[in-house]
Write a protein that binds this DNA or RNA. Structure first.
Lengths: 231, 231
DNA sequence: AAGTGGTCTAGACCACAAT
DNA sequence: TTGTGGTCTAGACCACTTA
């Protein structure tokens, strides 16, 4: 048929991407219906549908029944961020990883935390992750004991970080993350061995299971650490 | 059939998620083949395949021909970050947006930049984005003139930010992003109206088109600004 | 009312990799 | 060699939304 080799959804996908990139299909413009494209490419409608579904998932097109398919005005570019265990991240950088628990106890949470968890019983924990003996990340965490009663077991986080235990035991259904830059407060600075006011990369992450919020963590990364994403 | 309503890939998907979350299918364990699941759920193999494809894309399972499908040892959770235009981000926060170009000229780039672009001719631009009259983001950018010759037109970025122009005119094929926390240098501090050493959220983004790297931008966000992601 | 995307089916063939 | 996922097809029906 055309430039696209026939009979492969990937070929349709790539040709559509090319047309969008080359502005043969302009932003906001309607593109031909699946049946028309299937005829053009000499393939089944389902094959075109598969290609278009991938493009829609990537945010390059917007599809609506009856209204048809349009090229996105502004391609919603999704960064894909693989969330690594801190241990793996540090070991991948070639440094020796170690970990120290500062404390773990059931505790009443301040209002901003309560706002996320409602009336649930909460375990509070604090820990430091070291890279090559130097403090790298300070972790403060709240865990929903109503959903994760096993987390209350004494000594559980002495050797394994709460993060790793949760990854293996907590169901995952979604969450939110916020990244900001903050000046180190006195306690943080002391724990991380940096000057007060030093710029920390603060990552706050709320993880939800199917039955509600499971854990809220705040990771304060020492100056110089970076977070990498792929687009 | 089972708890899953028949004839819907979403039902298969949800039931599989439930079994993974409930550890009926344990991390690392092999799960039944598509044909077996299709029989169990009373649907076509393609329907099971669709459900499994989504789970694999979400990182919950790993699939290999002949070897079968396994529950991922550690669910690769990837954040999906919609990258907004700075203008939209500021307007969404309810503040008035404005923009000032500090300069745009063809210029020889320092080695770290050359390393990304090779021998290409490069346009350098600098600009500030304001929120409600206050400096919010300082933008420094390099644009590949070999791929985007239109960017060299004088006065182009006077009223529209380079970011918005590029989003509308540059093909997009991928990229990388790195986030870090940095102390404001003197020039940055002055431009943003903050004290030297204030913690800035630095976002460096390299955007690639199908023919090579298109633009490298460094956005320095004023203290207090946050970057939000969904998991 | 009608046109579009969304999904399902039953069957088929292929690609890959473990055996 | 063989079992598994990956893809394609031709047709069908449904769901949604615009006109």
């Amino acid at each position: 048929m055309t430039a696209a080799a026939r009979g492969d959804w990937r070929a349709v996908h790539d040709e559509a991407m090319r047309r969008i990139g080359a502005r043969e299909w302009k932003p906001g413009a309607l593109i031909p219906a699946e049946t028309a494209l299937a005829e053009e490419f000499g393939c089944a409608r389902a094959t075109v549908g598969r290609a278009m579904r991938e493009l829609a998932a990537a945010g390059l097109i917007e599809r609506r029944r009856k209204a048809g398919t349009r090229v996105a005005e502004r391609p919603v570019r999704h960064a894909r961020l693989a969330i690594p265990l801190i241990r793996e991240e540090i070991e991948a950088a070639g440094a020796a990883y170690s970990y120290a628990l500062l404390g773990a106890e059931e505790r009443a949470a301040p209002p901003p935390v309560r706002a996320r968890f409602g009336e649930a019983r909460l375990l509070h924990s604090a820990a430091i992750h070291f890279a090559g003996g130097a403090p790298a990340v300070l972790e403060e965490r709240w865990i929903n004991l109503d959903l994760m009663p096993g987390a209350a077991e004494p000594g559980l986080f002495e050797t394994e970080s709460a993060n790793e235990w949760l990854v293996r035991h907590a169901p995952f259904a979604g969450g939110e993350m916020a990244v900001s830059s903050e000046a180190a407060e006195a306690a943080e600075a002391a724990a991380l061995g940096v000057a007060p006011g030093a710029p920390l990369l603060a990552v706050e992450r709320l993880t939800r299971g199917p039955e509600g919020p499971v854990t809220l963590a705040r990771l304060a990364h020492a100056p110089g650490r970076r977070m990498r994403l792929e687009l």
